[in-house]
Design a protein around this nucleic acid. Structure first.
Lengths: 215, 215
DNA sequence: ACAAAACTTTTAGTGACTACAACTTTTGAG
DNA sequence: CTCAAAAGTTGTAGTCACTAAAAGTTTTGT
């Protein structure tokens, strides 16, 4: 299955080392941020600790915030894929609800149901720059979802009511994440929160669907 | 009615001059931003043009973004006052809807129904920093509204479902503003957009109320 | 008139981020 | 294997938002 060479460079060593270095830098940065907060660590210090130059950090992460928050594209992908890849006869909002419940059941990090997520969220909320980047990621996801929903419903791409629906789905996701992170950080275990979170998700999606139909 | 002295300093000259200087600086800055975009103007240049020192600019506006976006508190105040000062028997969401329609009917700047709002929004959307501040203002308003709604409904101050309602009200407000600014900047007059915007507001509030009840 | 309070200014940083040139490593072709 | 191009890293020298602190100026109340 695996070819076991160690000396010959199989096309892709550059890329692999690049990924590894990126992970290394982001790992070092994340650890420092969790320990001392976002503003308490300078990029120069991260570079020093990771044993690279400051410029290298910026080569891999154009903004300091990206060192801590780099799952933005993943959120966007989850939301749009849920709508795009659903069965023909399933309404978009039903697919989005299913996907949200699946994240919760799988204790996916983006559901917030992971130990340590409380500290993570606290670091974000304590930092204006990270909070800002958090909202920016949410908006990117909202815009992408609005486009996908418009496409699925055969509406014009900038329809305000479609955007309303997309923004509200994002509100639900954000509400669920914060609730999960808040309660797990308050000492409750992920297991204890799981049931309540699921019920909350259902209630919020119910409210949205009563408002706009099946979407 | 007015005491007409010009030489004697009636307690408040300092405050008046301060307000005037603040307005002067923000006016100069706004003009420059509209002409050349947010990133195209440095704070030093604004200070120079306004004939003050750079530090004075920062004394009046702690962030550069505040020079262009300083109506955040006003939004918060409008939303919370609508709920706080409503008649006892009026549901909170009905009061918020009335307030939104009133802004539209009065062509209030925060409704977006003002000539030149298109260019304003374009400058905001063209600048990452201003877009970020815009979202931050929205979040402040959302948090304040959530607290007020929770109080009005006798719920705990951090109730996730109340926050969902507040966030959705904000989504409606933001959607309406963008739609108004987009269409007036596309050449339509505020009068032509007014009727459509009112109807859109009603539809969005209908959707929200169907979902969560009268709030 | 005078002292305290409130502003403004100057000075001297810090820290994120950029442009650019020099240097090193990896890759692919001959 | 060799070598040149491509990709990546590094150091240098900025720019710009923003801060801290001290000194100078104007306004205010007595």
């Amino acid at each position: 299955m695996a070819d076991g060479q160690t000396e010959t460079p199989p096309p892709g060593r550059r890329e692999r080392k690049k990924r590894e270095l990126r992970n290394h830098i982001s790992g070092v940065a994340t650890r420092l941020f969790l320990e001392r907060g976002f503003e308490g660590v300078t990029v120069a210090e991260i570079a020093e600790t990771a044993d690279v130059s400051t410029m290298t950090v910026f080569n891999h992460f154009p903004r300091k915030e990206n060192l801590f928050l780099d799952r933005g594209p993943e959120i966007t992908e989850l939301l749009t894929a849920a709508v795009r890849d659903r069965e023909q006869d399933e309404p978009p909002l039903a697919a989005l609800r299913r996907m949200s419940l699946r994240l919760i059941d799988e204790r996916h990090p983006l559901s917030g149901l992971v130990d340590g997520m409380g500290r993570f969220l606290q670091v974000v909320l304590d930092s204006p720059a990270l909070s800002s980047r958090w909202r920016e990621m949410n908006e990117e996801a909202t815009t992408a979802l609005a486009e996908t929903l418009a496409l699925a419903a055969g509406r014009p791409p900038y329809d305000p009511e479609t955007r309303y629906t997309a923004a509200t789905v994002q509100t639900i996701r954000d509400t669920l994440f914060r609730e999960a992170a808040r309660r797990t950080s308050a000492g409750e275990t992920a297991e204890a929160v799981h049931g309540d979170l699921r019920a909350l998700a259902d209630r919020l999606f119910d409210a949205l669907e009563r408002g706009v139909g099946a979407g």
